[in-house]
């Protein structure tokens, strides 16, 4: 298994390089540049700015320089947030996004998976329909609708009650200020996990070996947990792998609405501002996370199902 992980990590290097290359050149192909939004400046000053940011050299040389700096761990300066390097921006934003993302994942797993199991055991009953109705709502209502609704309910309607929750301020990450954004982030994942778990549990409960386990006189709970659940978790893990990577890198919508200083905002703002280095930085961050999570998922497959072999 160790050699499997090492091999996968080695393959990750060319993968990452390919992503960096494509992203670098695509970014440059997009019309406009990092300084277009500024007030018009004399051509000499623009030329100086371009020279300062290494934009005056041929594109291929810029690419080479970027890779060299990257190898040294230097992601370069941000073009828009002038006093910050990309490393500093990500260093400040990523912990916030990652903490909230992690909390949202944990919440999604401890709520979504049991809900899915419950729905599968009560298939086609009122319980099942309510869980699936809730899940469908969670999936179809986008976060930019859900977030204002949550704010409306908890910050405004419940004002003055013990259930009032703050929204739109961060206060350095006080617990109370995290509740709404974390809930909002996790809702769609709760919904997906409930649906996926339900479907795979229904499938697993139909398996012959579950019948065998029941014929052995094991209590139903043991049959479900010990015999059915483990194989049923395979699709859940498949979904969670990239899901975790997305959650950890934050959400533009949720961070903007709830005023979180996370890294999710940078994906959109960076692209709109043609902040080349920042876009590269967040792309490398999320690509590395996705690659890592895919390796984790593949390792977990083997732990969940002994028929999976690491080659």
């Amino acid at each position: 298994m160790l050699s499997f992980i090492v091999r996968r990590l080695l393959i990750a290097i060319p993968t990452l390089l390919a992503i960096i290359t494509v992203c670098f050149f695509l970014m440059r192909l997009a019309p406009g540049g990092p300084f277009d939004a500024e007030a018009p400046v004399p051509p000499e000053i623009l030329a100086n700015m371009r020279a300062a940011y290494n934009l005056d050299k041929p594109l291929i040389q810029q690419y080479g320089d970027y890779l060299l700096n990257l190898a040294k761990g230097d992601f370069g300066p941000s073009f828009k947030y002038k006093d910050f390097t990309v490393t500093e921006l990500i260093g400040q934003g990523f912990p916030v996004s990652a903490q909230n993302g992690l909390a949202a994942i944990i919440l999604a797993i401890i709520v979504g998976v049991p809900l899915g199991i419950l729905a599968s055991l009560k298939q086609n009953t009122a319980t099942d329909y309510s869980v699936m109705g809730f899940a469908m709502t969670g999936i179809v209502v986008p976060s930019f609708v859900m977030a204002p609704i949550l704010i409306l309910i908890f910050a405004i309607f419940l004002k003055g009650t013990p259930f009032q929750l703050p929204a739109g301020t961060w206060e350095g990450g006080a617990f109370k200020h995290r509740i709404l954004p974390v809930f909002c982030l996790s809702l769609v994942y709760i919904a997906y996990l409930a649906r996926i778990t339900r479907a795979s549990m229904i499938e697993a409960l139909r398996q012959n070996y579950v019948r065998t386990a029941r014929a052995k006189g094991l209590p139903f709970r043991t049959v479900v947990v010990r015999h059915a659940l483990k194989t049923a978790l395979v699709p859940v893990v498949t979904f969670l792998g990239p899901g975790i990577a997305f959650l950890l890198t934050g959400s533009m919508v949720v961070e903007t609405i709830f005023g979180l200083p996370g890294v999710g905002r940078y994906f959109v703002q960076g692209a709109l501002n043609r902040d080349y280095t920042l876009v590269m930085g967040v792309t490398i961050l999320s690509a590395s996370l996705i690659i890592t999570m895919n390796i984790v998922v593949d390792v977990l497959y083997g732990l969940l199902d002994p028929r999976v072999k690491y080659e």
Partner: peptide
């Protein structure tokens, strides 16, 4: 009741199924 059945099943009355390829739990 399920618990009465479970005191008989596997204990006083066992069952062997048709398809041994799929009747054993694959991950145990």
């Amino acid at each position: 009741s399920e618990s009465t059945l479970n005191s008989v099943r596997g204990n006083r009355m066992g069952m062997i199924f048709q398809d041994p390829m799929t009747s054993l739990t694959p991950h145990m």
